[in-house]
């Protein structure tokens, strides 16, 4: 492996950006390809598919054997609101392999006693997200249903292209939220991608059941990321 390639690959991985190491198994040469980098021909198609599926493997193209090692950032879950549902989500998210963080400026809710083993920010979303930006491999679930806390985070999540954006609240609450988000200049298309009411419809009643519904919806969105890929491809075309 080329030392330069290793450095470049690790820079991408540390920055939570998708990258792929392409190794020619015939001559041992390798190169790093970032998601969205244009690659021509059949190899380009195979690479685009690999970024989607996250599956590494050997491919034969033009009589040559290549190994594609895909490095997708680990999915992350940012929850706005240190509420009962969030408490139930902590162990579930961990089991499902999601790094979870909670943001809630309300010190009465965001206490270390209630959230002992998760990263907790007792600050406003606008302050945390400035130094701790959202990205395409992050899911955002806003569960305070307080516009003062949720709205900024939802706006930031839509702008960052988060693979999942969900917001707790009834249809009526959400209708008002839609008006506020329109007022800050977000497009209807973008606002329509918010999952609200939040969670898959499994008839969840208790906070723990709602947490299951939310996590299931996040997993579904992550595995269906292909839906957002056409936009990425258009951008590079």
């Amino acid at each position: 492996m080329d030392p330069y390639c290793l450095k470049k690959l690790n820079i991408e991985r540390r920055a939570r950006r998708a990258a792929l190491l392409l190794t020619d198994l015939g001559d041992g040469r390798d190169r790093v390809i970032k998601e969205g980098d244009p690659v021509a021909g059949e190899l380009g198609e195979v690479i685009a598919k690999a970024f989607l599926s996250g599956q590494s493997g050997v491919v034969e193209v033009d009589g040559r054997s290549f190994f594609l090692n895909v490095h997708l950032p680990p999915p992350r879950l940012v929850v706005i609101g240190a509420v009962h549902i969030s408490q139930a989500l902590v162990p579930m998210a961990r089991v499902a392999g999601y790094d979870m963080e909670i943001i809630d400026p309300r010190t009465a809710f965001a206490t270390p006693e209630r959230f002992s083993d998760v990263r907790l920010f007792t600050e406003w979303p606008q302050d945390v997200l400035k130094t701790h930006p959202l990205d395409a491999y992050t899911a955002v679930a806003a569960v305070t249903h307080d516009p003062k806390i949720d709205d900024y985070a939802l706006e930031a999540a839509l702008k960052a292209g988060c693979f999942y954006v969900g917001a707790l609240g009834s249809r009526k609450t959400h209708a008002k939220r839609v008006e506020r988000l329109q007022a800050v200049g977000l497009s209807d298309e973008s606002i329509a991608t918010i999952h609200a009411p939040i969670g898959l419809n499994i008839g969840a009643a208790s906070p723990a059941e709602i947490a299951v519904a939310v996590l299931a919806e996040i997993i579904e969105a992550f595995r269906a990321r292909s839906l957002r890929m056409p936009q990425t491809l258009e951008k590079t075309a």
Binding site: R13, R14, R16, G54, H71, L72, P73, P74, G97, D99
Partner: peptide, 8 residues
Amino acid sequence: MTQLNTNE
């Protein structure tokens, strides 16, 4: 998928 949260 590679996990980066355990850097060591």
